[in-house]
Design a protein around this nucleic acid. Structure first.
Lengths: 213, 213
DNA sequence: CCAGAATGGATAGTCAAGCTCTCCGTTATG
DNA sequence: CATAACGGAGAGCTTGACTATCCATTCTGG
């Protein structure tokens, strides 16, 4: 297929497809003559993936590029997923050293209790988590950090379900793609479900609570 | 205190504090003379909250403004939390009508099973969830949507813990603030924990899996 | 076969968000 | 009273993600 159809099938405007080509997010089509190219269904799929990562996952295009390179690279699935997690987490906001220290301690306990591997700070996932916990304390919400253990237990359970999503796939490529999608969309889906559930319990617990004034 | 100290205590540059004042995110200080003002610890707290919502929660400043207005407004806590959820979800990406229809059906079952309240599409929370599910199907990842029920059960459990975080607070203001922080930071914290747990199971399940080539 | 539409490629322009910088007249302070 | 800080307002800057315009080539329908 050519540009117009690629655009139509993926729902991405022609000008934007050209932009993605320039940025190296979409591999060039196969040349049919010095200045004409032909695109494959794989290009359509790739565009759909880019849309999912940006629109639903909220990733900046630069991160999408890194993720796509990781997918196309020849690392192990485990390492590839690591890259995806780093990009999804993004750069961590910086917090005061003391608050980070304290949050780090809390986190270490939880990690040990669950038998997870302890990562020295430096990874984006870890740093973001520490920053979020430190921020909660700075705002005086210690209740939130006190429940960390309970959240961690449930996170373990969620991760077990996540494994079920990729388990049973045979090709390494399939596993990686499924893993990426599950990681990126999974966060959004779970957050949405949590919000629906919160709405429910919020109505039960403080549904009729009076306004302030 | 005056500008310089407000800036120092909150960690927000003076120019940025002025900008927030202009944008109405920060209420003006108390006038001491026609063109001098005095700020209170409440201003410091407010700035910290703004930082948390933008840096950790990833909210655009416009949404922060809406959330702050909701906090200051005199609606019930339940309604206020609804506003926060809407802003946190943000505008939903648009997906094809058929995919949305299908995702909506899946979601309806899950909502009924859990005894949640069904919201007609139109709310940002619902629309985002539908869009994420629809996107998963468009990418050919049906496994993810098949597990929706399991995720929903766990989301319920998480929401129950969330209630524990705000339960026991007496003042309505405290409940609202805690609710906002728990909603915004809670998503980030849980996502981080989930990633750590995924890392763990990923290592167990496909830790030694071979690269593609 | 040829007129007109489409293609690929490159460059420049646009738009919003979120600051950041510079002035300026006023006010506090050692 | 000299000088530093303040508040307020406007313009300017940077990044990200497109979008628009050209242009020389290539495809396509009558």
């Amino acid at each position: 297929m050519r540009m117009a159809e690629l655009s139509a099938q993926s729902g991405v405007p022609v000008a934007t497809v050209k932009y993605y080509l320039r940025e190296g997010l979409l591999p060039p089509g196969e040349r049919t003559s010095p200045n004409q190219a032909r695109y494959s269904p794989a290009h359509v799929q790739r565009l759909r993936l880019i849309k999912a990562l940006t629109d639903v996952g909220g990733l900046p295009l630069a991160s999408v590029g890194v993720v796509l390179n990781a997918i196309d690279g020849d690392e192990t699935p485990h390492r590839t997923m690591g890259v995806v997690q780093e990009e999804l987490a993004g750069p961590a906001p910086k917090v005061s050293a003391e608050a980070a220290e304290c949050a780090s301690g809390l986190l270490e306990d939880v990690v040990r209790e669950n038998g997870w591997k302890w990562h020295e700070p430096g990874g984006a996932v870890m740093d973001n988590l520490v920053a979020a916990l430190a921020t909660a304390r700075e705002l005086g919400q210690d209740k939130l950090t006190e429940r960390l253990g309970e959240y961690a237990r449930l996170a373990s359970r969620v991760a077990e379900v996540d494994v079920g999503v990729v388990a049973g796939l045979t090709s390494v490529d399939k596993i990686i793609e499924a893993g990426v999608v599950a990681t990126v969309l999974g966060d959004r889906i779970f957050a949405g479900l949590r919000h629906l559930a919160q709405e429910q319990v919020s109505r039960e617990v403080l549904g009729g609570a009076s306004p302030k004034r």
